[in-house]
Design a binder for these strands. Structure first.
Length: 569
RNA sequence: CCCCUCGUAGUUCAAUGGACAGAAUAAAGGACUUCUAAUCCUUUGAUGAGGGUUCGAUUCCUUCCGAGGGGACCA
């Protein structure tokens, strides 16, 4: 149940104000009721009236509405706000919902999430972590929201990069294709780019190999296919380590080359693209953007060209309602140009194209990570470091536990810490890479929330209660045994859907992370002062319901972020 | 020179234009004979600077200062 949305709809209908842009939101403080609205402020502006008096009037109008009073048991007007206390019967109804089931939509919508998108020839690095983790969370969130989700990693496998890799292989490799590992390829590439600095001949060679590849030279195609295969295998391994949703597609840029070709022809024919200094550009003065270069002097395509093909392909194949590009801030101009060209020459009429941008991960020096300057941190190293740190602590806490269990705990905690670090922030600020911050195991972190879950699991085990993970059935009578803290906690727990909805609308997984953290904080405070196992049977059974409810919310919330829970840690 | 993102406690981060700007960490003190102390409870501390719009601005506009990233043949 989307409580805020539901109440807003009721208010619109009862007060007949559908055109007015007000909001309904959970009150931050229980002294202001459970939910509140700023409707009086918004209406007062339009009618140039006093918001304070208007709030009083609206309150009276709502109080006389019998239908509305089934959902809200008390209404108050306070300094212009109207605050609502939810009706206990309705609270019981909402709390009894099965939140593990994905939300059903009336009309099933489709979304394409484009994320991770590494280049071939290199293992995944720290620079890929944000896109991979944020994209994965968004995919999970939209699946939960009942959308048809298409996950696609737009792998960089074509163009100059591919040519360089082939040239590097041909120039330096002593191994055959079959013997080659990704590490070998990476070494060859680094050696090649270093060599380029004082040997322009190598760059020339790379260009020639690129042209040969684009002309489907047999030998080059063979080398290229091997490079792609080795790279994808490595990517898949790391995604498995991270526990991300497996990609449905990893179409590379190469996949779009013929489509891009026809789009470029169309753009030229319709006069949108024109020659400039021997290359092909799309002027975007009207959009107040610099011109986009879509074809080089040597007729090779660029990043933006294949992305135009990508739009056409996706729209034709899946007919999505939205396409999310989870790509760092540095590509902002690229996407502005891409979307602008799409407006001039619509490759699809109705898909909403969104660049979900985020701040960059910066190196220790506060500058961009770059392989060339040797500031390369592989994702494998980050993962194993995280696991190691978690392992050390887990072993200290549980000296008697089996090695196998320890490893499981270390994996879930370590991965959780990495993901949470990114997903709890997700603003556009750049992030300075810092081992300790990224792998924090205490305070506002995934392990804190996971620990809360483990404690609750332990209560269930001690009380010999079966944890009902699916749903908890509540009646209004249960609340008679609650004190204030428990009331507030349950009201917090039923906000789950509101939060997920908002996270999906704003492409902001951090709303869920923050919410789950707040829930964990409340649970831990409650835990200190309320006993379950030693309480009397009646109180115990109600508190066990609360425990089950909290466990479900934490498990689901972390699950949407791609983070697991443990019954023991 | 132009464009994008950002500037909040000592540090790392929160805050759909809203009710006293929240956490974590660091510092000081306190709580395990009862469900896991990876926890809980106290205390100290912040919106880069100046204008403007608004009943109300960390949020929107503007000027300046500072950081990072882009700006036609890499992606």
């Amino acid at each position: 149940m989307f409580i805020a949305d539901f109440l807003k709809g009721k208010l619109q209908a009862i007060l007949n104000v559908s055109e007015c842009d007000f909001s309904v939101f959970p009150s931050g403080n229980s002294k202001f009721g459970d939910y509140a609205t700023n409707i009086a402020f918004v209406l007062a502006k339009n009618r140039s009236a006093s918001p304070f008096a208007l709030a009083e009037d609206l309150k009276k109008e709502l109080e006389t509405n019998k239908g509305f009073c089934k959902f809200v048991s008390a209404i108050e007007a306070k300094s212009g706000y109207i605050n609502f206390v939810l009706h206990p019967a309705w609270v019981a109804h909402i709390a009894s919902e099965n939140i593990q089931a994905a939300i059903k939509q009336r009309k099933k919508k489709t979304i394409v999430v484009d994320y991770s998108s590494p280049n071939i020839g290199k293992t995944l690095a720290i620079a890929h972590i944000r896109s991979t983790i944020i994209g994965d969370a968004l995919a999970r969130i939209y699946m939960y929201m009942g959308w048809r989700v298409i996950t696609d990693s737009h792998v960089g496998d074509w163009g100059m990069l591919a040519g360089k890799l082939i040239a590097a292989y041909r120039t330096y490799s002593k191994k055959s294709l079959a013997q080659l590992s990704l590490e070998d390829i990476q070494d060859l590439y680094v050696r090649f780019t270093n060599g380029e600095e004082d040997n322009p001949e190598l760059t020339e060679r790379a260009k020639q190999e690129t042209v040969k590849l684009q002309r489907k030279d047999k030998e080059n195609m063979k080398i290229w296919r091997a490079l792609v295969k080795i790279s994808i295998r490595e990517f898949t391994d790391i995604y498995a380590l991270l526990g991300t949703v497996p990609f449905q597609h990893q179409y590379g840029e190469s996949h779009y080359r013929t489509l891009a070709d026809s789009i470029v022809k169309d753009l030229v024919a319709s006069g949108i693209a024109q020659k400039s200094q021997g290359a092909l550009i799309v002027p975007l003065d009207q959009e107040k953007l610099p011109p986009a270069l879509i074809q080089k002097t040597d007729e090779a395509f660029l990043y933006i060209t294949s992305d135009l093909g990508t739009i056409a392909f996706r729209c034709k194949t899946w007919r999505p309602d939205a396409v999310l590009y989870v790509v760092a801030n540095e590509q902002a101009l690229h996407f502005e140009q891409l979307f602008a060209i799409n407006r001039l020459h619509p490759l699809d009429a109705h898909a909403l194209l969104v660049h979900v941008k985020f701040g960059m991960m910066l190196g220790f020096d506060g500058k961009k990570f770059s392989t060339r300057h040797g500031s390369f941190i592989s994702l494998r190293d980050v993962i194993s470091e995280a696991r190691e740190r978690a392992y050390t602590i887990a072993k200290k806490k549980n000296p008697t536990i089996s090695e196998k269990q320890l490893r499981t705990i270390a994996r879930v905690i370590g991965i959780g810490a990495i993901k949470y670090n990114d997903l709890s922030q997700n603003r556009n600020t750049d992030v300075l890479f810092d081992w300790d911050a990224m792998l924090s195991l205490s305070g506002n972190s995934a392990p804190y929330v996971q620990y809360t879950y483990a404690r609750l699991s332990s209560i269930c085990a001690k009380a010999k209660a079966k944890v009902k993970t699916k749903k908890t059935t509540w009646t209004q009578k249960d609340f008679a045994l609650f004190d204030d803290a428990e009331n507030v906690l349950l009201k917090k727990l039923i906000q789950f859907h509101d939060v997920v909805l908002q996270a999906s609308q704003e492409y902001a997984p951090n709303y869920i992370a923050n919410y789950v953290y707040e829930v964990a904080t409340m649970v831990n405070a409650w835990y200190e002062t309320h006993h379950v196992v030693h309480a009397g049977p009646v109180v115990q059974s109600v508190r066990l319901k609360l425990v089950a409810q909290a466990m479900t919310v934490i498990k689901m919330g972390l699950g949407l972020l791609g983070i697991g829970v443990l019954s023991r840690m």
